[in-house]
Design a protein around this nucleic acid. Structure first.
Lengths: 241, 241
DNA sequence: AAGTGGTCTAGACCACTCT
DNA sequence: GAGTGGTCTAGACCACTTG
């Protein structure tokens, strides 16, 4: 392995970075379990502390680790549920922005669906778990979600009833199935005159559709999700450099 | 100045970063004029090369500088015109994605407008330049833009006719007025049944509206722009970490 | 007080670009 | 060949957190 890295002229800090990333796939890091210290890592991988620091810095930039002076370096548990606010902002009269709660309405095991399996890098015959879920603010459904998971990775979910799911799905995946979501790609589009059983009872509406592929630390897709919301609630802000 | 920095416990690399940023506001850096070398900077600011490197790294992350091994470090000329593709993707049958060309239709000097002046951090009585501009792909208008500039900074533009503007505005601002756009905030929203004189001749349409505040190196707003496009053409993709 | 990450230095050698 | 940034080291001292 190390020889391979060397052959490709990969700098040591990159090599260390991948070693650490490998370390992180072990299911034992939570927000209070620090990684080995910088000097331990520098001993382990036979590089200077400065090189370890550079590797770790990259992982911090990627949002995978976070450091706390005096305490240590930790695996970051991203909160995508809150960061759906990237696309939708639901403003309360008094409080400001709200985080919607999640409620699973339906969960079934289904056979492979070509276009979904493709997004999840699965063979067409591999079966899936399909979930319907709504997001609620102030007793009002404001988002409707369809979720597809590779059954092979999420076997432990198939026997659960909708009520047994928790409010936030990604920490739940990790607890029940050891699947850790570390990044995602979202694609946004606009669809007109659509109907959604959870979202609008009174006919067709203009909706915003967000397609998300969520990935684990290795960059492998582990969830495909489509979120629908009313276009009226939509708001998005981005910084450009 | 330096004492001030020290008092606030600002690390040296941060201080150096600000010094460099100050350097950059001098109107003499283009894509072929390298900054002073790392060792020159380390002499000048009385810190080690490693500290300079850290300062420069930050500026590279911010998209303000770029480095090229063997050549030097340069001020980055961001191409926002191309990066409007952040929100709109216009797909050509053959070529893939296209960069639209820009055409100024109208330029006038106007008195202050409260809501605009606010966005530009101007007093209400300060006057503005107002520009209407369209973006064209394949002989078809696909974006309509309204642009407001502080007249005090862009005095040199008021005497120009629409034809005298170049395809890309931001390099043009820099050439004519020494105003360098280095970052921006964009806000996206949907508007229904709107009419736009350049965009749609056959009545009201659903539009996507992108409001942009463009800023100089000091973070001061220097342009406010509203871009309108048909919702059908809209597509946006984002990575989350 | 002990241990963590945060800052900073001085110097070495490598990889690339230009002339 | 001269000069640039790219990688890497070994060590110092500081700031913060925890027992």
């Amino acid at each position: 392995m190390i020889e391979t890295f060397e052959k490709f002229n990969m700098p040591r800090y990159e090599r260390v970075r991948w070693q650490i990333q490998l370390l992180l796939t072990e299911n034992k890091w939570d927000k209070d379990t620090p990684l080995p210290t910088e000097s331990e890592l520098s001993d382990k991988y036979k590089v200077s502390v400065g090189t370890v620091r550079k590797a770790v810095e990259k992982l911090v930039e990627d949002g995978i680790l976070f450091k706390q002076q005096g305490r240590g370096t930790f695996l970051k548990q991203p909160n995508f549920e809150a960061s759906l606010l990237r696309f939708f902002k639901f403003r309360d009269k008094d409080v400001g922005y709200l985080t919607p709660t999640g409620l699973v309405k339906k969960i079934v095991s289904i056979s492979g669906v070509n276009i979904i399996n493709e997004k999840l890098n699965l063979h067409n015959n591999e079966s899936l778990i399909y979930i319907e879920r709504v997001r609620i603010v102030d007793n009002k459904i404001i988002l409707s979600e369809k979720i597809w998971l590779p059954r092979s990775l999420f076997e432990n979910l198939v026997t659960l009833a909708p009520e047994e799911f928790e409010n936030l799905l990604y920490p739940f995946y990790y607890k029940k199935c050891g699947q850790f979501v570390s990044s995602a790609v979202e694609k946004l589009s606009f669809i007109k005159n659509h109907i959604d059983i959870y979202l609008n009872s009174d006919g067709k509406k203009d909706l915003v559709k967000v397609c998300r592929i969520a990935k684990n630390l290795k960059g492998e897709p582990i969830e495909y999700r489509e979120s629908y919301g009313l276009a009226d609630n939509f708001s998005y802000e981005v910084n450009i450099n």
